[in-house]
Design a protein around this nucleic acid. Structure first.
Lengths: 190, 190
DNA sequence: TACAATAGCTAATGCGATTAGCCAAAATAA
DNA sequence: TTATTTTGGCTAATCGCATTAGCTATTGTA
């Protein structure tokens, strides 16, 4: 008894488990088993039960993604920075399929908290866009488009939804180029 | 007894219920209640239980989307057709939030069937792209990019994930224009 | 008109989440 | 050091929904 557990360790264990078996298979029963405790004990750390655990998983995922993205953008600017960020996002999801499920899945319920969770990632994109001299609205469009594309692409990719044998890297590069062209056009016009 | 129920009616009821209360709240218990029968009776139509129901919901959703998209593209070509299709997709999800959840959610489990389900929608996009004189690989990139963007954008939009007050229509238009520019560039280059 | 299949029902089971309440270890206060 | 409170674990019991077993009336058909 008194295994040295805390919220953080439990969440990390749950995240690993989600990546291995899928978020739907992360149950309190099996998580407790993995941690060497009994299910009711988990309520000492998560009084809100499974729902709270999932919420924490969602938050943990966005925090992790944000830190990966931040690291990826260090020392880069403009197109290079955006490209690096997008690849970091994609690689993160490739490595954390289950956690990414949690990050998306939970947004179906709690849009407020989800909004806050994604804030960090969004603001990094905004910062990088500063360098292009766009107006606020233009930046909003670019960020939204990037978020939409990234989320959809990696979601489909990670579930094997793209059947064609053409390399996905090529499509990803093409799409980034296309979006970056869009940024360039905005600079030219207006 | 012997309420005139069949698979189709049950799925439609489940879809409506998903749109109203979210897919997570479509339980056999409440669905049966809604239909005026008892939960075990549902097994006469879905021997696979809840899982089969969800799979059918996913298939039904993709079929419905495909038909909406097909209708939207009638009499249109090139950019007009693509734009119409994308708007049809977006409007479909706006009207069928819960069903769309099912369409996505289920793909976490059954990638084979999901792949088949999306086939129709994908092939419509390919057909429209015929008019541009692109090679196969180029078409694949465009279709993938469109799918990625559409799925991500509407998913974020439908969960209220875009916080900024800037109208989402404007972003959607901007993104479509950007992607269509990408198509144009492919035609010029090669 | 018999009879097989269908579509419903009730009763019972299973399983995971959750709650209630107990207890020892650890941390803190006297 | 000792008393006390908090913490984090446990067992036992409950709840809720999915699911299974087995019964029966209706329906449609030979």
């Amino acid at each position: 008894m008194k295994v040295g557990l805390d919220k953080k360790k439990i969440i990390e264990a749950a995240a690993d488990m989600a990546d291995e078996k899928g978020i739907a298979n992360v149950t309190l029963k099996v998580l407790a088993e993995e941690l060497g405790i009994k299910p009711p004990s988990l309520y000492k750390h998560f009084s809100g039960g499974l729902e709270e655990l999932n919420k924490e998983l969602m938050l943990y995922g966005w925090r992790s993604l944000e830190s990966e993205i931040t690291r990826a953008a260090i020392g880069k600017a403009k197109d290079d920075a955006i490209t690096a960020i997008c690849y970091a996002y994609r690689n993160f999801v490739a490595k954390h399929k289950g956690l990414f499920e949690a990050m998306q899945w939970y947004n179906m319920y709690q849009s407020k908290e989800h909004l806050q969770a994604t804030e960090g990632t969004v603001s990094i994109l905004f910062q990088v866009l500063e360098a292009y001299g766009l107006n606020e609205e233009q930046k909003v469009h670019i960020v939204r488009m990037l978020r939409g594309f990234l989320q959809g692409f990696v979601s489909i990719e990670s579930h094997g939804g793209y059947g064609n044998p053409t390399p996905l890297n090529d499509t990803f590069d093409f799409a980034l180029k296309t979006i970056l062209n869009g940024v360039r056009d905005l600079q030219g016009g207006t």
